[in-house]
Design a protein around this nucleic acid. Structure first.
Lengths: 230, 230
DNA sequence: ATAATAGTGTCTGTGAGACATTATGTA
DNA sequence: TACATAATGTCTCACAGACACTATTAT
């Protein structure tokens, strides 16, 4: 039966929003060959010997065993498989999009964040086809940001409209009218997904900002019935 | 390296629209154990020895080696993996949604179509977790039918508005206003995705129907910027 | 003429887009 | 007071929903 089998892994495209409104990708230094010592997507092999109940828990294991923080959102994106992506032979990778809160600390020297754009334009090369996996996950995020509240999972539970604008802009790659976003947040309030805390945030300049609180329902983002764009 | 590997397959959820406006699922009789002789989703094992270039071509092989017809649309839905779905042990299945034209003939005694509802409500039980894969693929179709032209891939290239209504109703599980659908088809005309043939179809009763022709662009369905529902 | 079905027109409601206006803080 | 930024209001436009009305065939 051994030769009927194939090399399979789960890889994580974990994104967070940095203070300048850009998306950053979590990378880990590979501990084993191939590409030992290089920066790559965190991932684990899946096979009968690992204790994973299923693929989703393997994804959680991959993320938790490296970065300590749990993702605020985790979604399977797709699976790629071919003969050339891994020098060891025909292999499969099921990859997940993970959205992290902005403040997660890196406790580990073998972890770092890099701006996604640097990965996508090859300034920061990744081994295997990992840059392609990042690109597909990025597209998934952008696609869903058009008609769901997905970018809010890049924010802390309590957030301001300005922060939400930054999350949508980073996810979509383009600006959103703040009035449009306010309308959508209003809908989410009515549905109980967002509550007005009554508290305010006092930045150095300008009018104080209302603090909202995100109350996400189990797993799926809020779905709107229109596109934000044009 | 052998024990680092895992059993992986590609399975196909191929749907077509029958004359009564219902969705039917393509099944094949299993030639090998486990579940030899039972009706199940057509699928193939993927491993280094099969000549597939990649997962997508393995999916095409799975469909083409069984049913002769090529799908009008093929999309990867997801991958499931756990220790219990296959009696042989930890296994992966990457499954695809395929949309077929309505007239495909079955040349093979080991192939048949069954109504999807019978599979979803367990009246027609399937081995492994295949009913679950069908349910997820069905949801993908319904989800995309809300804001894309995906159901048109269930029709022949030349179709009428009435047929398009049936395809959307079957995909969504609920009726669509014909005026709404006409508006969407009009948009697709302007974008060059649909052309008016000028010919008409003459049913037994009633006013003749305009014949439209679907000119799908490479791979992705036409995307509208609103939901059809409420 | 009548039945049956296809196609068009009209009115309403919703929410995005753009932009102006008002509100509330700091220096 | 001046400035910076947040929040609200207004007007337009596109399109879905509902429903009425007109058009074109067969019997």
């Amino acid at each position: 039966m051994g030769s009927a089998e194939v090399l399979a892994s789960v890889d994580i495209v974990a994104l967070r929003l940095n203070a300048r409104g850009g998306l950053e990708l979590l990378l880990g230094r590979r501990a084993q060959a191939p590409y030992e010592g290089q920066w790559a997507l965190p991932g684990v092999l899946v096979n009968g010997r690992s204790a994973d109940l299923n693929l989703d828990s393997a994804a959680e294991r991959a993320l938790h065993s490296k970065a300590k923080a749990r993702p605020q959102y985790l979604e399977q994106v797709a699976t790629v498989g071919n003969a050339v992506r891994d020098p060891r032979g025909w292999s499969l990778s099921t990859f997940y999009l993970a959205l992290l809160g902005p403040d997660d600390e890196l406790l580990d020297q073998d972890l770092r964040f890099v701006p996604v754009e640097e990965v996508l334009d090859e300034r920061f090369p990744l081994p295997f086809d990992h840059a392609q996996l990042v690109a597909q996950s990025r597209e998934r995020l952008a696609g869903k940001a058009v008609y769901t509240s997905l970018p809010l999972y890049l924010l802390p539970a309590r957030f301001t409209v300005t922060e939400a604008l930054a999350a949508f802009q980073a996810s979509l790659g383009q600006a959103v009218q703040h009035t449009t976003l306010r309308g959508r947040l209003e809908k989410m309030k009515q549905a109980g997904w967002i509550v007005e805390t009554g508290e305010k945030n006092y930045p150095k300049m300008g009018r104080p900002q209302n603090l909202l609180e995100h109350r996400p329902q189990p797993e799926q983002p809020f779905v709107f019935d229109r596109s934000v764009l044009s």
